[in-house]
Nucleic acid binder design. Sequence first.
RNA 1: GCGAGCGUAGCUCAGUCUGGUAGAGCAUCACCUUGCCAAGGUGAACGUCGAGGGUUCGAAUCCCUUCGCUCGCUCCA
Length: 602
Amino acid sequence: MAEPKTNELMEKIVSLCKRRGFVFQSSEIYGGLNGFWDYGPLGAELKRNVKELWWNTMTRQRDDVVGLEATIIMHPQIWRASGHVETFADLMSECPVTKKRVRSDQVESQTGIAYFWTGASDAEGKVCAEPFSVLIPIGKPPESARKVAAQFYELRGIKSPVVQGERSEKLENTVLYHPESGARLSEPRPFNLMFKTYVGPVESEDNVAYLRPETAQAIFAQFKNVLETSRQKVPFGIAQVGKAFRNEVTPRNFTFRSREFEQMELEFFIKPDEAVEAAHGSVAIVPSSGHPGQPQANWGWQAWHQYWVEERVKFYEGIGLSRETLGFHIQTPEELAHYARATTDILFKFPFSKKDGQGNVAGDELEGIAARSDFDLSQHERFSGKPMGVFDDELRAAWAKLDDAKKQELSQRYHAARLKYLLKSGVEQARAEKQAKENADGLAKGQYIPHVIEPSAGVDRLILALISNAYSEVTETDDKGKSETRVVMKFHPRVAPIKVAIFPLLKNKPDLVNKALAIRDLLRPNMNVFYDDGGSIGRRYARQDEAGTPFCITVDFETFEGVKDGTAAGEKDTVTIRYRDDGRQERLRISELLALLMEKIR
RNA sequence: GCGAGCGUAGCUCAGUCUGGUAGAGCAUCACCUUGCCAAGGUGAACGUCGAGGGUUCGAAUCCCUUCGCUCGCUCCA
C-alpha cells in the first residue's frame, strides 16, 4: 500500500467522513459555520460508544470515582475564580508591520528613542497621510527605525516610500510598541474567547453569563455537595462528560479545533503530600515511567499523576490506539500554569501533525493530565467565601502521634505552600500570612484543601484520532488487470459504529431473507446491527468495510441444506462470519453467535 | 483578524483564460439478474455552478461584496 501524502490523506478522510455519514459541516445548507461540526449516523454511534466506554472505565468500573452532569451556563463568578474572565476576555494589540498580536497588558515596558512620521509618499506622488511611529533602543541608528516605517507604508500601497515630517523623542517605560519590530501597536481591542449570553430576557451587563469554556469548573463548584452525598473520602474523583465552547481565533484541522466541542474530564482529589507524609512517614516514590500499579495509601501527587497518565494510555490502547500512534509531551516549567506542578499531554500522530527537523512526528494533543495543586478549590473558597476544605480523621489521629520536629517541619512546608498560593493570587501580605497560618493550624487538626489531578480529554479529537487511525486502503487487481482501491475502516470492535452486519446471500430467496432477519432480531437487543440485502455479496462486504463494521454474518444455502464438508458436515442452522481486517470466513452455529460476538465487542 | 490559494452532482473532477443557458467517472435508488468479496442489464433521481449584487441581449465564465474550506501568521488551561 502506497503511503498517501499527508494532506491527501487528510482530504480523503474528510471526504469519507462526509460520504459515509461520520461528520458533516454544521448548517451546511446555509453555507456552513466555521468551527462547528455535526456527527452523522455512523459518527454519532462512534462518539456514543467512546463516551460510554470512558464513563464505564472511569466511574462504573471503579469504587473511587463518581459522576456529575452540570449545566453549561453557570454563575459568572465561577469564571472569575477560574481565571477565564481575565485570560479569555482580554485586550489584544496588533503590530501593524508583523501582524503579530500581543496581549495589551503583557507588553514588556521599553525605553528608547521613538521616531514619529506624519505620512509618506512615493515617486509617483501617491501619498499616505497615516501617522506612524517606531521605537528603537538608544544608540541604534535611526535608519533601522526608518526601515520599519518603510515596511509600514509599503503595506499601505506606497512603493519605495519617502517618509515625511520626522521627529524623535526619548520615551521611558512605554508599553505602546511591539517588542520585536519596534512598531507602534494598534489600539487594544477586546478579544474574547468565551461565548457570552444573557440570563433572562433583558440584555444588560448585570446578567451576563458565559457558555462554559471547560467542564472542569462545575466539578470544583459542586465538590462539597458530591463529597457529602456520595460516601466518598479523599482520594476520590468526580467525572463529567459534556459540551464546552470556545470562540477560537482559528478553528483548524477538521474537527480538531472546534468552537463547540465535548470534553471528558476527571478531577481526582488527593491529599496534600504533607498529609500523606504525616500518616505514612513518607511519600511513595514511583518510577517515572511505567504503570505504578494499584493505588496505595502513601501516594503523593507524583505517584497519582503517573498513575493517571498510565491509566489513560491503557484506555487508548484498549480502543485501538497503540502506544506507537501516541506521543507524549511533558510541559516544561515555562509552559506550566503557575499553579500547576506537572502536566503530561497525551498526543496522537494525526495526518496533519507536523514533523520536526529529523522527520519525527510529535503529534497533537488528545488529553492533558495536569497536577493542579489545590489551586482550583482554593480559588472557589476565596471567591465564594464557602469553605472547600475536608476533614480527615485519619490525618488528625496520625498527627497526634508525630514527634514535635516532624510536626513543625510538615506544618512549615504546608504554610509555605499556602502562603505562596495566596500571594500569587494577589492577597496582601499580612492577610496572606494570617490565612496561611490558619491553614497550617488546620492541617494539624486534620483539615486541608484537597489537591487535584486532572485528566482532561477532548472527545471530538479522540473521534478524529480513531477515524485517522482506522483509515486504511486495500488495492486489489482483478483478472482483467483492473485495479481498485477500497477503504477499510479498522475500528476496534469496542468503538465500531456498527458491530455486525447480517446478509442473506441472495435477496430473492425468502428462506434466506427470513433467516437473516431472524438473526438480526436475535442480536439487535445487544448491539448495533445492520441488515443489508442490496447488491452483490461482495459489494455489501465492501460497504461494511467503509463503515468499519468488524463482522459480517451471511445466511447461505448451507444454513438450510447442512454443511457440505468438514467435521461439521450435515449440520444445519449455521452461518458464515467474515472478518473485516483479513476477509477470513468461518462457519458458526447460529445458537453460538450471540455469545461469540458479545465476547468480541466487550 | 491579516496574507495566499480554493469553492461546479453524494464523491473526485472537466468546463472559467477566450461569456452563448452544464458534463464525465464513481456512488445512490428501483426492478431484473447474481451460489461469497464493489459482476452485469434496464430504468430513475441528482447541480438556481457556495451566496448576494453588478456589467451584458446573454454570466459557472468578467467585476464587487460576502460565506465556507486549506495553508501561513496569530491564538491555544
